[in-house]
Measured scan of single mutants.
Amino acid sequence: KEQQNAFYEILHLPNLTEEQRNGFIQSLKDDPSVSKEILAEAKKLNDAQA
C-alpha cells in the first residue's frame, strides 16, 4: 500500500521531467521497502524545480 501511494504521488508531481519520474518509479519497483525515502526525494526535487 505504501508503495502504491508513493507511486501515485510521484506520478502527479508536476515539476518532474519524464526522465526523473521514470527513475523514481523504477527505484520504487526495484526496492519497495524504501518507498518513503524515494517519495521524499521526489518531492524535494519537485519543489526545487518549481
Rank of each mutant, 00 (worst) to 15 (best):
N5S: 12
E37I: 09
I38C: 03
S35A: 13
Q20N: 03
Q20G: 00
P14I: 10
F24N: 00
L45K: 04
Y8V: 13
L13T: 02
L13A: 03
P14M: 13
K44F: 12
A6M: 05
F24T: 00
E37W: 11
S35N: 08
L16I: 09
P14Q: 15
Q3W: 15
I25F: 11
H12T: 10
P32I: 12
L13Q: 03
A48K: 14
L39N: 02
F24H: 01
T17G: 04
Y8F: 06
Q20A: 04
N5D: 14
E37L: 09
P32K: 07
K29A: 10
N15M: 08
D31L: 04
A42E: 00
S33H: 07
S35G: 03
I10T: 01
I10Y: 01
F7A: 08
E9P: 03
F24D: 00
P14L: 09
N5R: 14
E9Y: 15
E19D: 09
L39Y: 08
E2P: 15
K1R: 04
E41V: 13
E19L: 10
L45T: 08
D47I: 12
I25W: 02
E37Y: 09
F24K: 01
K44A: 05
N46C: 02
I38S: 02
A6N: 11
H12E: 11
Q26Y: 09
K29I: 12
E18G: 09
H12Q: 13
S35E: 08
I25Y: 07
Y8Q: 04
Q3K: 04
L45H: 04
L13I: 03
F24Y: 02
H12D: 11
N46Y: 01
L39H: 04
A40K: 12
D31N: 13
K43P: 00
K1F: 15
Q49S: 10
K1M: 15
Q4G: 06
Q49T: 01
V34Q: 09
A50P: 07
P32Q: 05
Y8D: 08
V34S: 14
K36S: 05
T17R: 07
E37C: 04
E19Y: 04
E37V: 08
G23D: 08
D31H: 13
A42H: 00
E9M: 09
L16F: 01
N22T: 14
A48P: 03
S27W: 11
I25P: 00
D30A: 12
D31K: 14
I38M: 03
K36G: 14
E19C: 04
L13S: 02
E9Q: 14
K29C: 03
Q49E: 07
F7P: 02
F7T: 09
Y8P: 03
P32E: 06
D30Y: 07
K1Q: 15
R21G: 02
E18N: 13
F7G: 04
A48C: 04
L11P: 02
N15E: 06
S27F: 13
Q49W: 08
E18Q: 11
K44L: 05
D31I: 07
F7S: 05
A50E: 10
Q49K: 03
D47Q: 14
E19P: 09
L45I: 09
F24I: 04
N5Y: 14
E41G: 05
D30G: 12
E2M: 01
E2I: 02
L39P: 00
I25E: 03
A42T: 01
E19T: 11
N46S: 12
Q4P: 04
L13R: 01
I25N: 05
K1L: 15
Q4D: 14
A42N: 00
L16Q: 00
E19F: 09
L28V: 11
L39T: 07
F7H: 15
G23N: 12
E9L: 02
S27Y: 08
P14V: 11
S27T: 14
E18H: 11
R21Q: 07
Q20E: 08
V34K: 05
L45A: 07
Q20C: 01
A6C: 05
L13F: 08
S35D: 07
N22E: 11
E2V: 02
N22L: 07
P32V: 07
I10G: 01
E18V: 11
I10F: 03
A48T: 08
L16S: 00
Q4T: 09
A40C: 04
P32G: 06
Q49R: 02
L16N: 00
A6Q: 07
I38Q: 04
K29H: 12
A48N: 12
T17W: 04
N46P: 00
S33G: 07
I10P: 01
A42R: 00
K36E: 12
Q3T: 06
N5W: 15
E9H: 10
T17E: 04
N15W: 14
K36Q: 08
Q4I: 05
K29P: 02
H12K: 12
L39I: 12
Q3E: 15
I38F: 03
Q4L: 03
N5C: 04
P14Y: 12
F7K: 08
E2Y: 03
N46V: 03
Q26G: 08
L11Y: 05
E2S: 02
T17V: 01
E18D: 05
D30Q: 05
Y8H: 03
A48F: 13
I10Q: 01
Q49Y: 09
Y8G: 08
K44S: 06
A48Q: 13
L13V: 01
P14E: 03
S33V: 06
A48L: 15
A48R: 15
E18W: 10
S35V: 13
G23A: 12
S27A: 09
D47T: 12
K29Y: 12
G23C: 06
E19H: 11
D47C: 05
N46K: 01
S35T: 15
Q20R: 02
Q4F: 09
A42F: 00
D47H: 08
Q3N: 15
G23L: 06
P32N: 03
D47G: 10
A48D: 15
G23R: 11
P14K: 06
E19K: 07
F24Q: 00
D30E: 08
I38G: 01
K43G: 06
L11K: 07
A50L: 09
Q20P: 00
A6W: 08
L39C: 04
A42S: 05
N46F: 01
P32L: 08
Y8L: 14
L39F: 03
I25D: 01
D30L: 14
S33W: 14
L16C: 00
K36V: 10
P32D: 09
P14D: 12
S27L: 13
K29W: 13
K29F: 09
Q26D: 10
A50V: 12
K43W: 07
N15P: 00
I25H: 07
Q20K: 02
E19Q: 08
Q49C: 02
P32W: 14
K36Y: 07
E9R: 05
A48G: 12
Q3Y: 15
G23M: 13
I38T: 13
F7L: 14
A40E: 15
K43V: 09
K36D: 12
Q4H: 06
I38D: 00
N46E: 03
R21N: 01
N46I: 01
E9D: 06
V34G: 13
Q3R: 00
G23K: 11
N15K: 06
Y8N: 12
Y8A: 09
I38L: 05
Y8T: 09
P14A: 02
D47A: 10
H12P: 01
